[in-house]
Every structure is written in C-alpha cells, then in structure tokens.
Write a protein that binds this DNA or RNA. Structure first.
Length: 1019
RNA sequence: GCCGGAGUGGUGGAAUGGUAUACACGAGGGACUUAAAAUCCCUUGCCUUCACGGGCUUACGGGUUCGAGUCCCGUCUCCGGUACCA
C-alpha cells in the first residue's frame, strides 16, 4: 500500500532494519571497503590463468561472434576515447555468454603501418621492434580494462605466419579473372581455355578494355609464354597498369582515394598530386554491383550504407558516339544520364587528358590548347578543389556531329571533365545542367530550351524531367520516359549509342613504395610478372640498412641485398597497403593456428559471419568496402560460405577531448615570405608593445616582450581595439593538467615553458609577470582564464586523458560504467572526468548492499518482499531490452535507480542480490566476480551462469495511480484498481469531485481513458 | 550543393504519441570533523508569489490529435560524410 505508485522512498520513513547500525563509526579503519585495485588485479589474473574466455570451435551451444575493429598499435597508447567501443562489445560478449552462447570475442593488431616506419626513418629502429613494444603496451592497457577476449587467438598482420595468407589471397586474385557470363571470379585457367577455343572475342570480362588486345584462337596458339602472359595480365583481378595515382612526396608513396582528404594525405597532412605510374591494382570494380546490392541485406547504420552507395556511385545512362567532322574514324564517346536532352547539346567538353585531343585540335587553336593543357597540369589537385567556381576551358577548333540530327557541335576542353570517369568526355546541355550553363555563359555559347517546363533559363539551368520536349526533333512533344526509350532505340539501331551503367568506384591501387608492409609476392622474369609459388610463402620482408628510398628513387625494398626469387629473379619492390591485412583478419580469428589454410573449412562454417562488428565510422568506405570485396571474391572461389562478412555493424561515436587554450596577443605579420617582408616581420616581433589599450582605457604600460597573454574574459576588448597594440589574438594549446575550471595554474605553466620567461599574463584587474601581480588602477580579478574547446583527443592538443590514471584511482569497473554512462554509444561526446565520481559511488553503494557497516558479508536467505522483487525484475527487463538496443547508458541509470531503491529498502537478501550481480556482471565484471565468489559460487564462474529470468507478475500492482488531466493538462492523481476497465474509470471520474474542483464549470465533452496510463477529460 | 545525424536545465543526458527534465555531474545549504578529505541528508528548469498557488518551457513557425520532445510541413543552427561524377 505504501508503495502504491512504485516509490519505495516511503520505506526510509520507517525504522531501519535491525542489523544496520546507525552511521556512527564510518571512518573506523577496520571497515574493509570496496577496493577495486585489489579485486580487479586478482580477477584479471584468474581469467588469464584459467583461460576463462577461450572459445572453442566445437560446441553444442549456438555461436555468437563479436568483433572489434582491431587497432593500429600507436606509440601513444590508448586514451579514454579508444575503449568506448571495446567496452560496449565486451558487454555484449559477456551478456551473450550469460544467454548460453558460445562466444568468439577476439582481439589483434593491425601492426603494419606508416607511423612505425616514419619513426624507423628518424631513429633507425627496426619498425618490428617499436611495433612489438607498442603492442605490449596495448595488451597491458586492454587487459587492465577487464575485456573478455580470447587472447589465444590474437593475430598481428605483420607476423609472417599471418601475412603468408594475406600474400596467398593476393595470389588468388592474381590468378583470377572476372567472367561476366557467370558473374563471378574464375581461375585464370578458364580464361586461357576460352582464348584457346575462340580467341579474345569469346570472352566477356569485367574491366576496361584499354590494355586488352583482340586476337583469334589461332593467334593465341602461336603466342609464346611471354606474349600470352602479357595478354592475360589486363584480365587479372590483381593487375599491373600505368595508373594515375595520388602521389604523396612527403610520405614517398602513393595513396588510395580514401587516404586523401582535401588534397592532403590523411596521415601527416602532406600535399598529394596526380601522377602516372605503373601500379598494382585490384579490380574491385568487377564487384561494384554486387557490393551495392549486398548493402540491402545488412543491418548497418544507414549513414554507412549510404556512404558506400555514394562511393560506388552507380548511375544509369547511355554512351553516345559523336563522330568528329573532318576526322574519319575519330569518334568521341560521351557518357550521359540524360540522353533525353541530347537535342540541347550545343557543345562537347573533353578532359584535357583525352586521347583524341591531339588529333582533332585545329592548327589555329594549337597554341591555345597546348597552353591550357600545360596550365591544367601545373594546377595541383588542391588548387582545383579550392577553385571550383572558376570557369576555364579552351576551344579545340574542331566540330563533332550530333548523332541524332547531324548538327555541328563545337568541341571544347575543360578541366571540370575528369579523365577517369565515364569516357572522359561529356555532351554539354547548358539549359539542363548548371555546370554546363555556367560554361556556356562564360564563353557565350547558346543555351536553347528543350522542354516546355523549363523556367528561368536566363538565370540558371533547369534540369526538370517534367513537361514535353521542344526543339527536339524526333522526341518533340514526348515526356521523359518515352523520349529516353525512343532515343536509346534510335541510337542503338544506328550503332551510335547504347544504354550503359557507370560506376564512380575506381579500381583499388594496391602498392605502396614503403618498407613496413607485406611484400607483394611477385617476381619478374624477362620483364614479365609471375606470382611466387604458394610453397614459397611467406615471402618474408627482408632486412635493409635504412628505411628510405634508394638513390635511384626505388622503394626501400630496393636496398635489400641478394633478395631474389630462387636466387635469380627480381622481386616486386612495393609492399601492400595498410588495408590488405585488415581485409580478412576476422576470418583468421576463427582458426588462427591453421598452418594449411587461411581458415579451416570447418571453423569457417561454424563461425560463419561476424554477428556484431563494432568500430569507428571513419572506416565506412575504406576497410568495410575492401573487406566485403575480398569476402565476395573468396566466396566465388568457394572458400567461404556466407554472403557478407559483417551482418550487424555499430559505429561507436568518438569521445572528444576538451582542450584548453590561452590567447596570445600578436602583431599583424606580413603575409608574404619575400626577404623584405621577412625583415619586416623580425622588426615587428622585436618591437615591444609600447602601449596596451584596454577597453576604453589606455594603460601606462611598457611591455618589453612579445609574449603577452590575455585572459579569456577580457579578450574581446582586444579583438576590437584597432591600432594601438597592432594586435591579433592567437590561441595556444595548454596542457589540460595545468588548468582547473578554466583557471590557468601560472606556476605550473611557467615551469613547463622556460622559454616564456618574462611573459606577461593580463587579467581583468592587472597582470602577472614572473610570479608577481601588478594591479591596474581600476581593480578587478587576478585570475587568468583559458578558453575551452571541444576537439579530437590528441597529443598535439594536450587534451589527452589517460585511462591508466583513472583506473588507478577509480578502477576499471568504474571507467567501464562511466564510458557507457556518458551517453548514447553512437553519439559524439566530450569527455569530462568529473562525472566519474558518480559511477564510483554507485559501485560503493552496490558493495554496501553486501557489506554493511562491519564489513562482513551480510547477505541473508530471507525471502524477498514484493517491493524488492519489483525492483529486481524491472532491472532484468530493462537491461536485457537496453542491451538489445545497444543503449548502455540507460542500463547504467537503471542499475543506479535499483541500488538507490534497495539501499532505501535496506535489502541484503540473496534472492535479490544474486540475480542483480549477474545482471551487472557484463558491465562491472570484476566486482561481479568478487561478489559472486563471496556468495559461495566457484571462483570465476559467473560467466557460465544463466541470465536471470524476467517474471512479469512481480511488476503487477493491485492499484494504479492515474494522472487525471483536463484538456491535456494534469490536475490530479487518482488511484484505481489495476483491473478497472476504462468505462468504470470514466464513470468514477464523472461522479467524483474532480470536475467541480478543476472543471471550471464547463460541460464534459469527452473522457479519454488509457488503461494503466492516464485519464484526460475534454471540456 | 547533395547525403546522413543532432538541437531538451549550468553540464552529460532520460522519456512504447500519455505526469517532460529520470539518472549523474556541477552548484547552494546542512550533518559529521579542530580542519580537510570521505560519507550522509536537503534544495536545484525558468518566471511569478511572503506563502498556498499560478504561468511558461524540449532550436523557431505552422499542422494532425482528446493529448506532440516524439508524427507531418516549412525555417534556422551545429556536427559528420561527400562533391566539377556528366
């Protein structure tokens, strides 16, 4: 009755249970308290020695595979942002074990990569050595967080026993081609059979035809080995070709498109330029459509699926041939998605790199064209990015004929047309395409309307598909669909065009001119590439003297001495990109010891797909796409049995750091870097601030230094003060350990910056210099304030929070809970260490349910009361529901509420606490193991227990308190029996004093009763 | 521009269309203490009122509904991705 509305708070009004002593001696030393440091070390050691979390490839239980994206072991170790996803996946892994599943939860390292190599170049240390050290740090940090990984399955991509199989998969790609007739990859043998039977004409293979030549079956028979291999090479799924690449001179290597951001390398931020180089490529484009279709079957975040769709970039259109006038046989193929607008095509635009440019340029335009091409080459990718709006182009002097009506169409060049997409040429329809419109406007070309629905053509292009076509020959008066079909039929009949699907996706460049990666298992005999025999794998990375390119500009592997295949043939010198090893590691975890196969057949079949993949959204178009590609390829070869590698994907959001910055008053420096300007800069920097204008007051200050810092609260007064200080404010990062609630600790700061002796720190009421404070005449604060900013955590921003420190102080269980408690898993959120005390005291309260004042275990075998059972079963229900939704923050809240309620109820009963311990164990595993053992269970056995069963009947109350509202506004609370029907409640309300009290005398129009929830009276 | 996502107290955030602000931090007050830490208790969205109470509030403007933080339409802001893709 007291708890009619489920508020056990009432209980605290009653007398305390007899065995709870009043809070008199809470500081007494002998009281053993919750000591996470001891408990956590103990159980981590226990799990390790007993291999508690070892997964077995044979089990009668259903399997569950929880995977974390494995880390690159950087030298900086983990910060508090890194474990977020690992904690969440560990909760799921532990929860699934309680649900009776055989759980595979592995961890490993993506241990090839650029940072270790850069460090090697600087220090001469072998990257393997630093990588090994970094991995040890990572393992230590991961273990002290209490993750339930099966460490016996750990893989490292730089381990020869692992990369042996990465190389092996490469060889399978090298030995395969993609047959469009069967729509799958096949061994190169079937290609040779086709060549032998019917020559190149009998083959429909994925990929561009550029390097492929036509030959008959007879010609094939006459070819020597070298010629045959040369003919096959452009069909392979791993092939070598001169390719425009993103060359990054700063890193000395090529990068893939997803490693380039805004014209700069993602790692290091060096400029990237386009360059034509012979490269190994993987023919991912063969899988474009399957990669696209497969997305529909995946339980992934929509954002990631959408990114992959955009990256693949399927477009449905037509390829149309425009014959060039006066150049017989010179045809320009354009790709268009709007063939219906072809009568509006008033000019063609080719990419400056287009192969016909040279042929068709008229003598009179030769000089202008050459100059334009040269200018285009000079422009770096970055310039082109930052200069999108600017229209440029040049007329070639040549004309093509519009294939539908023969009208002459001038041919232009412009760098807005990309050589690598479609055919490298477009038909420009200025009335329907804004880019073409701007071009036509700029060069004064006609912009004829083609549809009666187009509007405002004097302002902008109108790409509408509505209306009827005008000025459009054979499609005049038709609608969009009819016109498109009519035109394609017309063009196909004349052999001047055909419907075509295009993809934005490019083949993946697969070589890096670097040392610390998997050697590509290829050697050259007479200039022809051969795959290394499988029996000779792994092709081990050779030792070299320095990790730099050779003098001749060859990759570092060119330094290896006597490194020849079988003692005689040169090896390929580039290594694989970072994503090679990570494209299949999840398969190796299934069977990491297998020496005969990349994964054993049975193991692969048993574990199948990854059930839950946890990782960052930054891998949306790189790793996740490449992994799917390799999986589909392996499937074509019959080596894996599923359809997709990762069924469910969760992106954990990033935890951001809160940076602290101080503002330095600086001079306005000349932008130019000329010598005169440099001298001027020096002069300015050396000059003191003679006067500091501050608000409207001019201070009588001579500041003999260039290091004048301004407190954040008064910074605005300087920003808007023209002239006097010649000042601008620049923000400098300050280590967050030197700041407390935006207050800068000047002693700490000065101690860490000996170079800033004599620096002046201006506050609202005076300034600090060398430890002493000089007041301004008008008075004010002497506190120097910083400005806070939420940014990515990184060493360079001095805002990194180290988990080790927090674990020392609060314990891993508290850190795990707190990271989950911060907010929804998938959201980006700033880190604030202060809040961790909240989960810390929650754990202590939980502990005290078992160990009240005297410290001894005080759990009783008394039967639980209805109120206690209600609390327990609400938790059972809510937490299971939350874990299914990956809503861990609300689970933590639920635990807190339950512990608050049980503390108020004075509960110390096994019947409640034992199941509650199980519920908490995925979140705070160390504490749970400790209490579980204290409750008399075998040590370490909590993960083998069964999840408590939810029983609805404990939540049912005899009475329900209804909020009663008038017109949606709650006015009163009324109690009714839980079994009362809507009609009964309505009658009771109508007959009660409710309306006289709150109804303002109005007539009741309607009474809405939602049984169990609320009542609303409409007047 | 296009594609995602998000706007709720001082802060992190909660809320199957049904009592908005749970839980936690911070802040304020109190107890214990020589003092501090730790611990415990109380208060804490905003406005108004001595008080009881009343009014307002989920970025903004409309709409649907007995009832909207939640659904629909429009606008704004922020974050992420992507872009001369024909």
């Amino acid at each position: 009755m007291q708890q009619a509305n489920g508020r056990p708070a009432d209980a605290k009004l009653g007398p305390p249970p007899p065995f709870v002593l009043p809070l008199l001696d809470s500081t007494s030393e002998e009281m053993p308290v919750y000591s996470p440091q001891e408990i956590e070390k103990k159980w981590q050691a226990h799990w390790k020695t007993h291999q508690t979390f070892k997964a077995y490839n044979h089990s009668s239980k259903p399997k569950y595979y929880v995977l974390d994206m494995f880390p690159y072991p950087s030298g900086a170790g983990l910060h508090v942002g890194h474990p977020l996803g690992y904690i969440a996946s560990d909760i799921v892994a532990r929860y699934q074990r309680l649900q009776g599943r055989n759980v595979l939860h592995p961890m490993g390292f993506d241990s090839f990569g650029l940072p270790a190599e850069q460090y090697a170049i600087q220090t001469g240390q072998h990257p393997a050595v630093t990588t090994e050290q970094n991995i040890e740090t990572y393992i230590r940090q991961l273990q002290q967080l209490g993750f339930s990984y099966d460490w016996s399955r750990e893989v490292r991509t730089s381990d020869p026993q692992y990369y042996k199989w990465t190389q092996w998969i490469f060889l399978q790609l090298f030995n395969s081609w993609y047959n469009l007739d069967t729509d799958r990859a096949e061994h190169i043998r079937t290609l040779q059979e086709k060549f032998a039977a019917s020559g190149s004409a009998g083959v429909r293979a994925a990929g561009e035809a550029e390097d492929r030549h036509d030959f008959s079956a007879g010609q094939w028979q006459l070819m020597g080995e070298k010629q045959k291999l040369a003919a096959i090479l452009p069909y392979r799924l791993a092939y070598q070709q001169d390719t425009y690449v993103n060359w990054c001179a700063g890193l000395g290597t090529v990068l893939s498109n997803d490693e380039v951001k805004d014209g700069l390398s993602e790692r290091g931020g060096y400029p990237v330029e386009r360059r034509l180089m012979p490269q190994w490529n993987l023919r991912i484009t063969a899988y474009a459509d399957r990669l696209l279709q497969g997305l529909n079957t995946l339980d992934w975040p929509d954002a990631v699926k959408e990114m992959q769709r955009n990256w693949i970039g399927k477009s449905i259109g037509a390829e149309v041939t425009f014959p060039v006038q006066g150049h017989a046989g010179a045809d320009i193929k354009v790709y268009t998605t709007r063939v219906d607008t072809i009568y509006g095509a008033t000019f063609l635009v080719l990419a400056p790199e287009h192969e016909l440019v040279d042929t068709l340029t008229a003598p009179g335009q030769r000089a202008a064209v050459d100059e334009y091409i040269a200018a285009t080459k000079r422009r770096s990718e970055r310039d082109r990015m930052s200069d999108v709006k600017h229209v440029s182009g040049v007329f070639t002097g040549a004309y093509a004929a519009n294939p539908v009506d023969g009208a002459p169409v001038p041919i232009w060049l412009a760098d807005y047309v990309l050589a690598g997409y479609g055919t490298g040429a477009v038909m420009a329809v200025p009335s329907g395409d804004q880019r073409d419109y701007l071009f036509a406007q700029h060069f004064d070309l006609p912009i004829p309307a083609i549809s009666d629905a187009q509007k405002d053509l004097d302002q902008q292009a109108d790409p509408t598909k509505e209306g009827r076509y005008i000025n459009s020959g054979i499609v005049n008066g038709m609608g969009y669909k009819e016109a498109t079909a009519t035109l394609i039929a017309f063009l196909e009949e004349k052999a001047l065009g055909k419907g075509k699907v295009n993809f934005r996706l490019r083949d993946a460049i697969f070589g890096r001119q670097r040392y610390w990666g998997e050697p590509i298992p290829v050697y050259y005999k007479d200039g022809t590439a051969y795959g290394v025999a499988e029996a000779d794998l792994p092709l081990v990375l050779p030792e070299i003297d320095e990790y730099k390119p050779t003098e001749h500009g060859e990759p570092p592997l060119g330094r290896a001495t006597d490194w020849k295949y079988r003692g005689q043939h040169e090896f390929e010198l580039s290594t694989m990109p970072g994503w090679a090893g990570s494209s299949w590691y999840y398969l190796r975890y299934m069977d990491p010891e297998n020496a005969d196969r990349f994964v054993g057949e049975e193991a692969e079949k048993y574990w199948g797909q990854v059930d839950l993949y946890m990782g960052g959204a930054e891998h949306a178009t790189g790793h996740l796409l490449y992994s799917r590609f390799w999986y589909l390829f392996l499937k074509d070869l019959g080596l894996v049995t599923g359809t997709e590698p990762f069924q469910k994907l969760i992106n954990q959001g990033m935890i951001l750091g809160v940076s602290e910055k101080i503002l330095r008053l600086g001079h306005v420096l000349p932008a130019s870097t000329s010598e005169a300007a440099t001298n001027e800069t020096k002069a300015i920097l050396d000059a003191p601030f003679t006067k500091l204008k501050f608000s409207s007051m001019e201070l009588p200050l001579e500041l003999p230094t260039k290091n004048v810092f301004v407190s954040q609260d008064i910074s605005d007064r300087f920003r808007s003060t023209p002239g006097v200080s010649e000042g601008t404010l620049t923000a400098l990062h300050v280590d967050i350990s030197q700041v407390d609630s935006n207050k800068l600790d000047l002693n700490k700061y000065s101690a860490s910056h000996p170079d800033l002796k004599n620096a002046v720190f201006v506050c609202a009421g005076g300034y600090w210099q060398n430890g002493s404070f000089t007041k301004f005449p008008f008075g004010g604060s002497d506190v120097f304030l910083t400005a806070s900013d939420v940014e990515k955590m990184s060493k360079s921003k001095y805002n990194v929070v180290n988990p080790d420190v927090l674990i020392d102080k609060f314990g891993a269980d508290a850190l795990r809970l707190y990271e989950m408690f911060l907010g929804p898993l998938e959201q980006f959120k700033p880190w604030n260490t202060n809040g961790i005390t909240g989960v810390g005291s929650f754990l202590k309260k939980f502990w005290r349910l078992f160990h009240p004042e005297d410290g001894a275990l005080a759990v009783t075998d008394e039967p639980a009361t209805p109120a206690e059972l209600k609390t327990l079963h609400r938790v059972i229900q809510k937490v299971a529901h939350d874990i299914d939704k990956f809503s861990f923050n609300t689970s933590v809240s639920t635990f807190m509420i339950a512990v608050n309620e049980l503390t108020a109820l004075g509960t110390h009963k096994r019947a409640v606490l034992e199941p509650l311990t199980l519920l908490l164990s995925p979140f705070a595993p160390h504490l749970a193991e400790e209490l579980w053992a204290e409750l008399g269970h075998a040590p370490g056995s909590i993960s083998e227990a069964a999840y408590p069963e939810f029983r609805e009947e404990f939540l049912v109350e005899a009475n329900v308190t209804y909020p009663v509202a008038i017109n949606g506004k709650v006015r009163d609370q009324r109690q009714f029996a839980a079994t009362a029907t809507a009609a009964e409640i309505e009658t009771a309300i109508r007959e009660s004093d409710f309306l006289t009290r709150f109804g303002e005398g109005k007539a009741v129009k309607k009474v809405v009763v939602v049984p169990g929830r609320m009542v609303n009276v409409v007047v």
